[in-house]
Design a protein around this nucleic acid. Sequence first.
DNA 1: CGGCGGCTGTCAGGCCGCTGTCAGGTCCGT
DNA 2: ACGGACCTGACAGCGGCCTGACAGCCGCCG
Lengths: 223, 223
Amino acid sequence: MRVLVVEDDARIASDLGAALESAGFRVESCADGEAAWFLGDTEDYDLVVLDLGLPRLDGLTILKRWRGNGREMPVLVLTARGAWTERVEGIDAGADDYLPKPFRMEELVARARALVRRAAGRGSALQEAGDLVIDTNRMSVSLRGVPVSVTALEYRLLSYLMLHRARIIPPVELLEHLYGDDDARETNALEAVITRLRRKLGPGVLGTRRGFGYHLEPLEPGE
Amino acid sequence: MRVLVVEDDARIASDLGAALESAGFRVESCADGEAAWFLGDTEDYDLVVLDLGLPRLDGLTILKRWRGNGREMPVLVLTARGAWTERVEGIDAGADDYLPKPFRMEELVARARALVRRAAGRGSALQEAGDLVIDTNRMSVSLRGVPVSVTALEYRLLSYLMLHRARIIPPVELLEHLYGDDDARETNALEAVITRLRRKLGPGVLGTRRGFGYHLEPLEPGE
DNA sequence: CGGCGGCTGTCAGGCCGCTGTCAGGTCCGT
DNA sequence: ACGGACCTGACAGCGGCCTGACAGCCGCCG
């Protein structure tokens, strides 16, 4: 996690840096507006902490330029106490969160963490198990990087197995999930789906434990 | 048991909260999508009850983001009556169960309990006795760290002995547990299973007390 | 509207591992 | 030493599971 701290007050900057570092961030600092703009525009940060009162180039302007250039990293804006207009402007400029000064370091760290995590949810939401990767946003599946086309039903099955990949899933539970109607199916619809999926995914992905249920293959503790 | 209720209709939310609380849950409510997403992403709940129609941020989107971020708590989705597509989408997004509105509170509570129970087996659910370890998630057995492949019946036998490892289990009780039918079996099916298990586990694991029953080996109270 | 193709449940057939049964053999308690 | 409780290996039937084929359903498109 790489974070850029833009703050001209040396004492605050050093406090911020210390707090964020002890929270596990890799911190880079910058006191000058022009330099900050350049860094944020060219480097990749997971988070920027941006003070608005800066020499040479206003914080809001920097933020607007970044956004205008398509830079989408989360930005946490520090505003002076009660400067309400600044807050509104900050939002308009594309800030993701703001914190009025003075603030407690714990709160800043908490918000920083939340922002980073939230930003993670923006990209493609990937879940993986072994060679299999499913993208829950695009509802797509790929195996060893190669996309595999699956039907809606097959996708549901895979995504459920993926979500509960730590367990063995008994057939009843899968049936309940795929079809909802809890009237006991006496058919082998499930087996059919499994077979068709296996044909697409090849061996070594969908595992069966006779008498127990199904699971995604990399299930560590042996056989 | 901590549960998050995400529901914008105040009346329904309060009914839900009351029902779940009287069922022994600790309830937190949230009517706003953005806030719900944040809570579910940063707090740890044992269950989330999620209504799909929300202001600011759609329930399905929230769910997908949670899953994409690796949040795996059980989620019970509330859908509008007859909105079948919603149900399917909910499953696709990673819901563990869903309930069409309107519903009876008893049913919701029942399903909530079931979900929590199911998810309870998620942490390292290891039970051990002596050198023997049973993983109830993976339904696997290992001896001195070495995985042993057992059949469904053998597994049930072992897990029953494990559960009651403090005492000696008479054969009738085991038969009853394994086969249900209480008509006294005059066969030696049980002995056969025991023998096969002993072959896999080696000596010193399954003990016999002639005339009393079976037990797992390290039986504390004086030999 | 009618044909077409993809999706999916059903059916029949088959494989093979699991499991009860049987026929002994062994061990323990009395 | 005897009887019964228990063990064990062999074996055959069953049932869980797999698979290919087929048909109904539905959306798509001309």
